[in-house]
Nucleic acid binder design. Structure first.
Lengths: 240, 240
DNA sequence: CAGTGGTCTAGACCACGTA
DNA sequence: ACGTGGTCTAGACCACTGT
């Protein structure tokens, strides 16, 4: 790290990548603090400013959280963060809240072509599939199907109950931390499954959110299709 | 700017705000370059690093564009930028392209309650309204209604033709530059207007995108409702 | 070549949180 | 009082662009 290293990426990128590797290996647990900027700078043989730029980048991606006077921490998956960062549905009026869930079914099977394509898996791969309905207060707002590569989540279907906050669950149980999602939205007509789960009529317009969630190594680890009733909710997206 | 200024915001924020004021006043036209970092630093009596941090912030917001070896430029509204920054609809397969438009109607009237609320206008305000259909190649993909505060766009409806790229139009004709948008999405059922414009059936599910566009002073300047056929297109949203 | 933004360093001081 | 991150400065060198 103290060589001139002609032609390589900038130092602060190398530092960021090194920190990312350590985080991916679980060197520091979510909620704990990293060494100070000065400490990391000494250890890596670079200036504090270079470490700072690397840490700022990771904080911008919500992988780290900076707290003035306290230190730099590994981000956790509390409901407030999930609601802020990943959950984009808002009630048209009234209070925002973390949606509750009721699991309808859980299976482990050979994945469909769609699931394999989304998750980048081979023909033989098993998939863990969870179907659930989510509620805003007492009102059902969406039905969703989660698809996970069974190989990454050993023992998933031996777990008694799937918690409501699954990203926290992935992190605490398997050390898999979601850092990015890519979503594709379409309007579709409700089918009989939607009618049963949501109480709408067949043919009613639903917002389909197709989400691929990536871990810290940008590896796809969850594929999710949410069918949302948007009579009293909307999906918010701010562009800057 | 050389005073200690206890209790005020950080220097680089003050510099950013001063640059924003100058940009809002049209001190530099889109496409032209600002003075160099050193020049601005000398003029404002701060260090180059402080100016750099201010410029980096404006570049992150796509208000400025940095070009190594050339300078810092005021962002323009070429189609490629609009497509990249503001247009979130992608074809499910095939090539991406800037959608073409056919204007269906143009009026200037008293705004509806919905429009007034969205744009923050009073009861007496006039609204310019444009309805158009947009195409991906030859395929109609959406019908949309643009609503503008007539007071901000004098002479709008005397213009012969509304160009396809309206954000460029707003910028060149009235100096109003869109920098941010907030969108709310819902799934709705097509009505007879949609059937006529898009050739779908009444009741077909459509993606409604309700967009509020803000200028550099975060003042709302355009309200837009787009009804999109998502049989061969989807809305993309990446979260990080 | 000169001029621009991009990286890197070193050091000072401030604001905040904890003890 | 101390340690943390946040701001600000000054100066060096690199990478890129145009003449």
């Amino acid at each position: 790290m103290s060589e001139p290293a002609i032609g390589l990426s900038p130092l602060y990128i190398q530092v960021r990548d090194e920190l990312t590797r350590r985080l991916a290996k679980g060197r520091w647990r979510p909620g704990t603090s990293l060494p100070s900027e000065q400490g990391l700078a000494r250890e890596m043989g670079v200036s504090q400013g270079t470490v700072r730029k690397a840490l700022d980048g990771l904080a911008a991606d919500h992988i780290l959280v900076r707290k003035q006077g306290r230190g730099t921490f590994v981000a956790e998956f509390e409901e407030s963060r999930i609601l802020f960062q990943f959950f984009r549905l808002w009630p048209d009026s009234g209070e925002r809240m973390f949606p509750t869930s009721k699991v309808l079914s859980r299976t482990t099977e050979k994945g469909s072509a769609r699931e394999r394509a989304a998750l980048g898996l081979g023909l033989l791969s098993k998939i863990v599939r969870v179907e659930r309905v989510r509620y805003h207060g007492r009102v059902p707002i969406l039905r969703e199907i989660l698809s996970l590569p069974a190989g990454l989540f050993p023992g998933f279907n031996e777990v008694r109950q799937v918690p409501n906050n699954v990203y926290q669950f992935y992190s605490e149980r398997w050390g898999i931390r979601i850092t990015k999602t890519k979503e594709k939205l379409k309007a579709v007509a409700a089918d009989t499954n939607d009618r049963r789960a949501l109480g709408c009529a067949v043919g009613d317009p639903l917002l389909l959110i197709e989400r691929l969630a990536l871990d810290i190594n940008t590896r796809p680890v969850e594929y999710r299709r949410s069918f949302c009733l948007t009579t009293h909710m909307h999906y918010a997206s701010d562009v800057t």
